[in-house]
């Protein structure tokens, strides 16, 4: 049996933050994986355990785990627990890229609707990146 993971610390989960609680958990776990704090093969707490830590319902965590499993970031072994997939890091990066792409597309559309030309949109993007 895999050694119990030391307490998993995620970013704060709050109804006041954007996105549903389960999305926040998905994003939080992805961030842990993509930023290397959760290494491939690391075991994750059971969803009941994590629910208790995060003070959210079991079903919320379960759903987040299911989604991460679908994306191939984590995998479950019956009776052993849940682990970060070997490709989890890449997958999580990939998933992040997808999200970024989606957000850029949306931003571009909004900007276009506001009447910005292509060059102006690029300028805006550059300004935001530099400003950060």
């Amino acid at each position: 049996m895999a050694p119990a993971n030391k307490k998993l610390i995620l970013g704060p989960i709050s109804p006041a933050a954007p996105g549903t609680l389960y999305q926040q958990i998905v994003d939080g776990l992805k961030r842990e994986v993509s930023e290397g704090r959760l290494k491939p093969g690391a075991s994750l707490p059971s969803f009941r355990q994590l629910a208790e830590d995060l003070l959210v319902s079991v079903i919320t965590v379960k759903r987040a785990y299911e989604e991460l499993e679908r994306e191939g970031i984590i995998y479950r072994r019956q009776g052993l627990g849940t682990f970060v997939a070997d490709l989890g890091h890449d997958r999580s990066r990939e998933a992040k890229l997808n999200v970024a792409q989606e957000l850029f597309r949306e931003a571009a559309q909004e900007a276009a609707e506001a009447g910005l030309k292509q060059s102006e949109i690029l300028e805006l993007a550059q300004k935001i990146i530099k400003g950060k």
């Binding site: 109804p15 009941r48 208790e52 319902s57 079991v58 079903i59």
Partner: peptide
């Protein structure tokens, strides 16, 4: 949440504080 941790125990809760119910209840 601690009480239901082992997956065997069940909680039925009636409440008016709906934001809590939404956050903590599965059904």
């Amino acid at each position: 949440l601690k009480a239901v941790e082992d997956g065997e125990r069940t909680v039925l809760i009636s409440s008016h504080s709906l934001s809590d119910i939404e956050r903590f209840a599965d059904h």
